[in-house]
Design a protein around this nucleic acid. Structure first.
Lengths: 174, 174, 174, 174
DNA sequence: CATGAATGAGGTTTCATTCAT
DNA sequence: GATGAATGAAACCTCATTCAT
């Protein structure tokens, strides 16, 4: 069985970008972590930039899938709580997606911008499903607060799920 | 007379870090922008890292001063609105402080973490002044939403003051 | 076939360090002399310092091997004369080992100190083999005189073998 | 009273060159140690090189004076022992004169070479005074052994005067 | 597919020296 | 004499990328 080389590289990249950030992670380190020679990197990816973009897309796909599942079942439990916890479990995803993507280069920022919009639309969609007034404002408040807690979790290594639940209850979203 | 060389360098750094980010801005570019030779940079700053930290501290000082003024006068107008607009006017501050500081190196992240805490405490302090219950939760919601709007302003170049006012009114903070 | 790149670099370093000294020889010059690009240097060596240390160790190895051969055969001819001439033939070795190593940085000095001790011990060992009284004092006198002649050879470009032989005969060591 | 600025600079240079070597000591450090601004250095000296050469000449003068005093009085006590101890007391002199001078640049090496010759001639002169046969060979042995002990003193921080006395007695020079 | 030796543009930093005050 | 701001040549080192095998 085992992962393909390509998958091993992406896995390694995810780990290292999360740990050290985009600019301070080298191709050398990624290939070493993946257990292949560093020339191999360029068999699968055109450049470091392209590699990071592929990674970002993969991660975004995971998050969106999770949100969509909650929408389908009309379940706030699944939409708000499970999605949140899923992301929270992967500190690497947070670090890469919510921090790193915004520094680095123009194209990553564009990608972040576009993704952020998608997330907010999903939240709006769900709030509408719940018949929530002011869904536009609340989608942004929710996004802002979730990101605040993600930051908190990463920066202080604290447990934040309870705060998230309190927040949701406060606005009758759970 | 004009600025001192040190000030010119900081000004140039602020502009360039905001435009291109910490890692992609070179000392050469900063000194060129400031109109001095690149050796001069090291007359005033020990390293690129130290330079960035000095810049971050200056910027944080400005923001905190602004918040403190609002607290002294017990004026939500000054605390929430004017401070917000002041930061908003300096897109560079936002880009540097809320984006760049979190990537790059450990010490910058630590600085960001510490600063974020200070901001939230200021907001809590003010909410208590207003006699607001749930000041803890709301301080974080406000921080999260403000940051969301800062991001929005930078990423889309949109005017966001109105949305900020609506948000404040919605929670009777203006 | 020819030498490996690593060997070419060491060879070039030996030549240049001997000619111009450690501090005034640049990586650029070493790689140019070796006929490779300067980036290649760092494929094989971590830093200029490490490179110099590797070189010093190689050179010391050659000298020690030579001394050991003389000890094995109990031959003053081989121990004193051949070893001396071998070192003398490589002016670069002298210049690097007996001069340069002692300037530059702390770690090189430590290395020189340690090596000097090893040489003296070898001489003591051999003098004991010859049944020489006062082997401790004489080992140091021999070392001191040999170094004097090495210096002489380098500084004045004079032939010094005859003086070395006279010295040895004077103390009945040949 | 107080030293002149020029003397303070030379004093500072002596200390720092001995501690850190020629290449790793900066003009900045020398002037700081001397308590003057670094521009002042160039009021008194044309360049770092010239400065070092002046220092070397001063030091050599001291050593030669000491040897000459011993010659005048035909006193082996003063010539061998006191001169040796005088130099030994100033570790800085040793470090600079016997180590540093030989690395660095061509002109320093030339100076060292010339000085070494002068010392040996003084020793020869004194040995002749004592009616010593083989004064040529012994002058060099003495020089070599003294330098060995100077090195020892610097490298290991050991007390070496006793060894020097034993050496002298062994050859009936005390 | 996989390798790893080689490249070289480009980055940060140092520091002897100059010069207007 | 003394100062110290400014300079810029030049050093070390990094690392994304290429390419022959």
């Amino acid at each position: 069985m085992g992962q393909s080389t390509r998958e091993k590289l992406l896995e390694a990249g995810k780990k290292l970008f999360a740990e050290k950030g985009y600019h301070r992670t080298t191709i050398e380190e990624i290939t070493k972590e993946a257990g292949v020679s560093h020339g191999t990197f360029y068999v699968y990816f055109k450049s470091k930039k392209e590699f990071f973009l592929v990674l970002l897309k993969e991660i975004r796909g995971l998050i969106l899938n999770s949100l969509n599942a909650g929408i389908k079942e009309k379940s706030p439990q699944r939409f708000f709580l499970e999605s949140f916890e899923k992301v929270l479990k992967e500190k690497e995803v947070i670090r890469i997606f919510f921090f790193e993507a915004m520094c680095s280069d123009k194209e990553f920022i564009d990608f972040y911008c576009e993704s952020r919009q998608l997330f907010i639309e999903k939240i709006e969609e769900f709030l509408k499903l719940l018949g929530k007034q002011d869904y536009r404002l609340y989608a942004r408040i929710i996004h802002g607060y979730a990101k605040y807690l993600f930051e908190e979790a990463i920066l202080t290594n604290r447990e934040v799920t309870e705060e998230w639940e309190n927040f949701l209850k406060h606005f009758s979203l759970l």
